[in-house]
Every structure is written in C-alpha cells, then in structure tokens.
Write a protein that binds this DNA or RNA. Structure first.
Lengths: 218, 218
DNA sequence: TTTATTTTTTAGCCTAGCCTAAAAATTTAA
DNA sequence: TTAAATTTTTAGGCTAGGCTAAAAAATAAA
C-alpha cells in the first residue's frame, strides 16, 4: 500500500506532530529525513493526494486519521521488533534501532499479531517507549523528565527522550536502564545539574542529561 | 551493498544454475522474475559490471564466486526466517514463503548470527531444504525423488521439489510432512503412479506427485 | 511599510528498475 | 545453406524519489 519512503515520511511527520501538535513545516521534515526541502515538497504533495495528510502550500502538513493509522502501525512494528531483538536475541538496547528500522516495513498483519503474542503482548519497548495496540492507541503513562524531580524524590527510569548511541552508552556507564531506581540527592538551581543515587553509587549529572531521561514517580 | 531487486535477480540466477549448471538464458530469468527479457538484459549487464556474474551477449549469465556468496547469504536468511516463523510463531509451512521473501533482505550479519543460534542452528528449513552455513556451504543430503523408489522400499519425506500452496495443501490432506515415513506398496509401470503407505493409511498418488516429493532412504 | 532574509515551491535533471517497439543475432527448418 | 522463427539486445519512455538552481511567498528588520 505504501512504499518504504512513504512510510518513513509519515512516521517522521507523526513524531514531529507529537512534539508541537501544529502543522509540520517542510524544513522540519527535511531535517529529520535528511533530504532537501524540495524533495519534501514533492513527497508531501503526493501524500496529500493519497489522503494521508492535509497540506497547505507554505503552511505545512498534518496527518489525517488515515495517516495516523499508518504511522502508529509502523511504530508498533518497530517497537515490537525491538522487544524481539532484545528479549529473544539478547541484543543490547543501544544496538537495535537500525535493524528495527528495516523490520518495521515488513508487511504482514498476521506476522505482527503472532509476534506480539510470542513476546507476551509487551506494553513498552526496550527504551521504555509505549507500544501502540493494533488500533493505534498508546497506553497512557505519567512519566516525567528526571529534571522535574525535587531533592529527595525517587523515580523509576521508564524511558529516554533522546536515544542516540552516545547517550545510551553514557547511561550504561552510569548503570542506568529501564527499571533502574533513581533518587535525587541534590539539585543545583543555577545550572539545573543534579546529584543522584543509582543503586549503591552516586553520580553527578548535568541538566542536559536530566532533561533526556523519563522517570515514573510513585 | 545490493538492492532488493539485485538480490532477487542473483537469487533467481543461482536457483536456475543449480538445475542446469550452464549459463542461464535471459528468457529463463525473465520467466522466474516475472519481468520482460529487455529488463533482464539491463539488470544482467549492471550485475556484470558489479562483478557478481559473468555475462556474454546472447549467451547468458553465470554467477561469479562473489555472486554465489550473495545468493547463498540471501537463501540462508530466507530459510532461517522460515524456521523462525514455523517453530516460534507457529505459522504453517505453506504460509511462510511470502513473509520470508521480505525478511530475507534485512541487512545485519549480527542479526542472522543470533537468529541462527536462537533457532538452535537448524540444518533444514520447514520444507526440508538445506540451510547453507555462513560461508555458503550446504549440507550434503542423499535425498531422492519418491518416484525413484521401488516397490517395498521405505523413505522419510525430507522435502518438496515444488512448494506451491496447492501442492503443500494436498500433502497436508494426505498427512505428509517433513519426517513422515512413507512406504511404497505398489507402482504402476505405464503411468508411474504409486500406492503408498503413510502412517496407518494408504494413498494413491500420481506420477506428478511422486516426482515432486523428496525422500531419504536408509 | 518598505526592504532584506528566510522558507517554500517550481522547474528541470538524474538514477534505478521497469516497460514497448524495433533491430540484431542466433537457432531451427526447408 | 538460405529462409523463417525465435531469442536477445537496443533505443526510447515512464515513475519513484532524489538533487540543484531559480522563483515566489512569507516573515523579520530597518
């Protein structure tokens, strides 16, 4: 139904829209797709004809209901495959993205249905991101950024905002992964840095880090 | 390194060459690829430049060592994924081909290494076809066509020559699958048909069927 | 509010992989 | 061994998805 390129554009627009909810600009899309704005214009016009998004010249694009369905289906597949790679094939969570990027385009509803069951109907991928159900609905979570916690508060790491290999490897070095309990020992006002407790160790982390990590408080 | 289309051509030429060992004709390739001969000429010339095959105008194509490596790698991936689909996701052996046809193009050596291990390093796919190892070597089997067996001989079904859904479903109806023990009760000279024993039942099968089923004798 | 800057679109071109129609080479038949 | 039939290649076109360069629209600054 949709080509790989089309699916990737739709997915990118979905993610961009999730952040700002308004129409997504041509340049923003070009940025994340690593293409030129002129190429984006072409593709966006084609996708508008296919009814997966609404497009107004010079204004930007926003997904239709149909487009959202395509996007969540691709995201669902991506995240389920990531669970497979980590849980079944023992990949590390910072190695799976590129492979899942390929696997997310495999077309077979039956395959995904069975894969989901095989994995025990997981709700979250190895990075802590929610896996939408077959209808495209995400489980609501009340996760917040680590940077929002006050001194003395505790939280459980449930995800990352950024998932570059560099960042994930940094977290590894600090022994932080999904499920890790974190306690805020101290917080600096002027630069937003924190001292946190992870297991038996304590670490100093910058504001940048604290704003890239999601935790769930209880 | 190679596009999906290129990999599919290489794979097709490999299979054609396995049957006749000589140079493969343009028309033969067009046939299995379901394209026009002119398209094949284009692609074959491109693949010759890429050194995966030797091509002589009007004579045909034959894979180089490099081409054989590409082909066996794709075949290895295809068959390993089929094992995954049947063993882990409980697909039926006649449902997995189209999905494996997509999965065989996923690029990641590490993925295949781990998948192979996860599946217990299988030697055969669900249709009984051998899975080449990482170096492209096939395990030798002395399978023969059922039609070659004489009256009274026994064999174990180890594969099929043809794997259309229709044929596989026919085998199902007769309760024949990989590992099924078959005994030849009788054989007609004039049309090559047979009466065979499968489990507690006996069946009449035509020459066409007997020539589409591989068995291993002991 | 006019000018300068930035963003977006248009126009035209490129490659991969397909196609059709016509030409050329090979094979088969007379 | 020449003519007919078949196979294969060439030539020229098409679509998807990119690109650059230039034009047009929108936004920001003077």
């Amino acid at each position: 139904m949709f080509t790989y390129a089309e699916e990737n554009y739709i997915k990118a627009i979905f993610h961009l829209q999730a952040q700002s909810d308004k129409e997504v600009s041509t340049n923003a899309i070009a940025d994340v797709m690593e293409t030129k704005p002129s190429s984006v214009t072409d593709m966006v016009q084609k996708l508008a004809e296919k009814k997966v998004l609404a497009y107004r010249k010079y204004k930007g694009a926003s997904l239709t209901e149909q487009g959202r369905k395509v996007a969540t289906s691709v995201i669902r597949k991506h995240r389920l495959w990531e669970v497979f790679l980590v849980d079944k094939l023992n990949f590390h969570w910072d190695e799976v993205h590129d492979i899942a990027e390929q696997l997310e385009h495999i077309q077979s509803d039956e395959l995904i249905k069975r894969l989901d069951k095989f994995l025990g109907n997981p709700d979250f991928d190895p990075h802590g991101d929610p896996i939408p159900d077959a209808n495209g609905n995400f489980k609501k979570t009340e996760k917040k950024l680590l940077s929002k916690l006050k001194k003395g508060q505790r939280g459980v790491c449930v995800g990352v905002k950024e998932s570059s290999p560099e960042f994930l490897q940094f977290l590894d070095k600090k022994n932080i992964s999904i499920g890790t309990k974190i306690k805020v020992l101290g917080k600096e006002f002027f630069d937003g840095s924190m001292v946190i407790e992870v297991g038996k160790n304590q670490s100093f982390i910058s504001k940048k880090i604290a704003e890239s990590l999601y935790v769930q408080t209880n």
